[in-house]
């Protein structure tokens, strides 16, 4: 998957977690926590959805890498670059 495709995956997960949210305005550099008021329960969900949808396992110590869109894509790139886009 390319960075752009990974971004789409994460965006899809955010859409399902927060269906009432307008994500077209998302700023990739700003923390999800500050933009979307995500809390620890929501970060668990990003991890769970990545596992469910793409079999990507993220250890608990690495959750900090999921702070913003940019940091999430950077963290996921080595893990997901060999996954075919579905």
């Amino acid at each position: 998957m390319t960075d752009a495709a990974i971004r789409e995956v994460v965006l899809g997960i955010l859409e399902s977690i927060a269906p009432d949210e307008d994500l077209t305005q998302l700023d990739d550099a700003i923390n999800f926590r500050d933009q979307l008021e995500l809390d620890s329960m929501d970060f668990l969900d990003i991890v769970m959805e990545l596992r469910k949808r793409h079999r990507v396992q993220i250890p608990e110590d690495d959750y900090v890498n999921l702070a913003s869109m940019n940091s999430t894509v950077a963290y996921l790139t080595p893990m997901m670059k060999d996954i075919e886009k579905v």
Binding site: I17, P19, D20, L36, E37, M41
Partner: peptide, 20 residues
């Protein structure tokens, strides 16, 4: 109200993947 991001109701809707 709909669109509120904080609080128990908002949290619940997100966790259950439900809309307001």
């Amino acid at each position: 109200p709909k669109g509120t991001k904080k609080g128990p109701l908002a949290k619940l809707l997100r966790q259950l993947r439900m809309s307001w």
